[in-house]
Amino acid sequence: MKLTLTVLALFLLQAVIPAATLYAQAPRAEDENEVKAQIILNLPLVANWPEGTLPDDGKVRLCTLSDGKVSHYLKLMAAQPSYADHIVFVPHIRDQQVRQCQVLFFDKQDAARMEALLETIGQAPVLTVGTTRNFARQKGMIGFLNTQKSIGLFSQKNVKFEINMRQTSATGITLDPLLLELAEKIIPEGGTP
């Protein structure tokens, strides 16, 4: 009996180890906040603001409110030439100046200010992006979601986003249709997701 089990175990190991090695090419997990920052920095390239609302230099003002984790990565990466060509990073924007931004990011610690600031923005063409819970369902435009797929003890987290089309349309901002395809959920102009 012991011999049979040993042979069985060796057979299983022989089958499993090469297969595992083949699947070993997966990249290591990245910091969730860094990935969110990269997504935000790519958004100006797939969004279109109403005619004449961009600053004279044609560059998008990407504003943050505080020193959160995502904001930290935004600050580091926005200075890179590939982003600096079309983005001007504006940290710690004052509440009364938020309408001057083209993209405004709400980090986790900005949750308490969110409602009032969204009220201030009203229908100004400011693409609001947030990482607070249910951001896109609370009058924000693009809200991050964390999804998780588990198999056995393994779990894989991904950063996804949902888009509130009702809010974006009201401000005249248009988004690339392919961006909408990438969204996990769309809150349509006239209803709920």
């Binding site: 997966a26 990249p27 290591r28 997990a29 990245e30 910091d31 969730e32 906040n33 990935v35 990269q38 997504i39 790519n42 100006p44 390239l45 797939v46 969004a47 279109n48 603001w49 005619e51 961009l54 044609g58 998008v60 079309h86 964390n146 894989q156 987290k157 991904n158 950063v159 996804k160 986003f161 248009t174 690339d176 249709p177 392919l178 961006l179 990438l182 996990e184």
Partner: peptide, 30 residues
């Protein structure tokens, strides 16, 4: 998707969409 010339060219836009797709499929850790 008629692109506003101010923000990005078509090539950049395609690259951005490609990056975005990779990013949402990237495993992350918190």
């Amino acid at each position: 998707f008629p692109m506003g010339a101010e923000a990005a060219g078509q090539e950049e836009r395609a690259r951005a969409l490609s990056s975005l797709e990779q990013l949402i499929n990237q495993e992350v850790t918190s």
